[in-house]
């Protein structure tokens, strides 16, 4: 499919599920990497957080209300930056970039209006805020010995 096409509730949820799964793998790599200081602990915590989100998204998907389903228009999957961030080297800077990109994605999804169901909107808003906070923590965390 066209990578930019998110035309249904299911497609948005599928993209989000894959994103969270990729993000948890990324943070696992970061936790197991050569970093010192507080990064391994923080990365483990964030990896677990993204795994929890996967379970939450599966619940949201299964609570779809058929009565209020509408086609989604104008919602695009994130640009290539997100793909590069999630698939690239697991560094603190890349991790912060990734969380910021995830926050932007969820903010956009949450603003898609009625086509994204109310319960799902609240979850996406929460994820956006959480990823924003994660990015700040990653940017401010100190990593002795890491460039």
């Amino acid at each position: 499919m066209d990578a930019a096409e998110l035309t249904t509730f299911g497609a948005v949820l599928r993209f989000s599920l894959n994103l969270e799964s990729d993000a948890s793998s990324f943070f696992d790599r970061l936790a197991n990497g050569p970093l010192g200081g507080e990064f391994p602990k923080l990365a483990r915590e964030l990896a677990a957080g993204h795994r929890r989100r996967t379970a939450l998204l599966e619940q949201v998907r299964s609570r779809v209300n058929e009565m209020t389903l509408e086609p989604i228009r104008g919602l695009r999957s994130p640009d290539e930056g997100l793909g590069r961030a999630v698939g690239g080297s697991a560094t603190p800077a890349a991790a912060a970039d990734l969380e910021e990109a995830i926050a932007r994605f969820y903010t956009e999804v949450a603003s898609a209006g009625r086509a994204i169901l109310g319960e799902a909107t609240r979850t996406f808003q929460r994820f956006a805020a959480e990823s924003g906070r994660n990015a700040v923590r990653l940017r401010t965390a100190q990593s002795p010995g890491f460039p």
């Binding site: 249904t8 509730f9 998907r61 779809v64 058929e66 009565m67």
Partner: peptide, 10 residues
């Protein structure tokens, strides 16, 4: 569609 089907099962 799968969205409709999930809605039906719900």
């Amino acid at each position: 569609t799968i969205d409709e089907a999930r809605g039906e099962v719900r």
